[in-house]
Nucleic acid binder design. Structure first.
Lengths: 256, 256
DNA sequence: CATAACCGCGTACAACGTACCCAGTGGAGG
DNA sequence: CCTCCACTGGGTACGTTGTACGCGGTTATG
């Protein structure tokens, strides 16, 4: 009855009124968890391991955080803070959304284990809220809130999906403890078997393309992103045209 | 050294050559796991619980599956089989992609816990491969494989992102064991505090809209989906126009 | 029919999150 | 100043998890 009344970590005050000074802090614990997760994956960031990292006893963490799940909430929100939103919205919606998208992707690549934290654990943190506020602010002047939500769902879906895709391979390698070449050697037989079966002609095309990619991963991401932004542009009123045509420099219109 | 040479579950044969007839099967175990996950979430589908469900001893499962993670691979692939791909590709790409998207979303809503299984655990299963083959086949005649991958990344990102969003609330409620009204009562103070602070004007708009939604969730999804399909249409050569204009019946062109 | 390869599964263990308890500490009230 | 008690860090212990190991029984193959 004393703890259950707090819905989530954001409602619970960090520091109480009286008593001795705490030796650690939520921020410090969160930082340690991120450090361990970066090095060995989120599943390695156990309560004991995190406590050891900051030189505390395992149970001491529970003075700062009610459960490991809540700690993961803190970690997830901490990651959101890495996305640079300085000056967004700037008035140039296309530049803003591009910067946002690349910022999110870069953060995912720095912390691939974010793929293993669930969306429901991400809500209502201060950095998460700030991000929503800034991102939704980009198109707020041009479209209704429904429209805005719909468009940002497309953008976020693309960005997160692409990041997930890129990151899943890396995570699989890390978990299995294999190197890229070892993994290829192990998967070779299966892939070969699939290709030889002749049942998967398109899968064959994908594998061939993957062996000799036309574009770097960065460029693949940017290419798809431009498409999504074109899609958003088509949904905007003409008043939303950016002041100067200084973007889309590296990318020209598609024509097969 | 005897097991480690198999990269994943799909390379390992289910049944060996000699010995007594197995009493169970991978399919049966997988089905039991899905049943438990549907009822109580994936985290409730422990090895002991699954074994009990089919009337086996806990360790018996390891005769069929090398680890729980591999069992989750089987489960993930089993879910893919629920997506109806009959007659896809049909020649009408827009109808095909619409049916695919709604099939994926429906599957997510039936099995919300799919949000907790990671992408890297999903690769190379037979149903997964069939799905790739069929889905990529829809636009294969019209665009290059790179272009196709790029467009499907946008579509899949939208579909999966939207499904994740819808499902996360439901999962949070289930995990906390609260009813919708209890949850609202618990979260009320936090949301109220955020709204009152005045720092989050757009978040306020979102909350207001969520209280009185203009569109049902189904319609919200379809609305965004139509946008994504329009985006794809713009990337296709004119030869890809569908034979008849019998779709998009409930949706008319956007004009603000 | 002997044998080796398989079966189901009971026991056991390490690692996890965390409940509970304790002794020590330091600001508030006298 | 002292006293008090809400707080602190953290050791011990428990229930649950995945799963290694080994047993005794079963069956296709030689």
């Amino acid at each position: 009855m004393t703890d259950a009344e707090y819905m989530n970590i954001w409602m619970r005050p960090e520091r109480p009124a009286r008593g001795p000074k705490p030796a650690y802090s939520r921020a410090q614990i969160t930082e340690a968890a991120v450090r361990i997760a970066d090095a060995e994956g989120l599943e390695a960031a156990t309560m004991r391991r995190i406590a050891a990292e900051i030189g505390a006893g395992a149970m001491s963490l529970y003075r700062y955080v009610p459960s490991r799940d809540d700690l993961v909430d803190l970690v997830a929100d901490r990651l959101m803070a890495e996305i640079d939103l300085e000056g967004i919205p700037s008035g140039d919606w296309r530049a803003d959304l591009t910067r946002y998208a690349e910022g999110v992707r870069a953060m995912w690549l720095r912390h691939p284990w974010i793929a293993t934290v669930h969306r429901s654990r991400t809500s209502f943190g201060p950095n998460q809220l700030l991000l929503i506020e800034r991102l939704m602010g980009v198109l707020d002047a041009f479209v209704s809130i429904d429209e805005n939500l719909s468009l940002m769902a497309i953008l976020n879906g693309y960005v997160e999906g692409a990041a997930r895709e890129e990151v899943s391979r890396a995570e699989e390698l890390r978990r299995s403890g294999l190197s890229e070449s070892e993994w290829m050697a192990r998967s070779g037989p299966r892939i070969h078997q699939l290709l030889e079966s002749g049942e998967y002609p398109i899968f064959r095309k994908i594998v061939m393309e993957a062996r000799q990619p036309h574009l770097s991963r960065d460029d693949q991401f940017r290419y798809g992103l431009e498409r999504v932004l074109d899609c958003i542009a088509a949904a905007l009123p003409s008043t939303a045209e950016p002041p100067v045509a200084a973007h889309r420099e590296g990318q020209q219109d598609r024509d097969d």
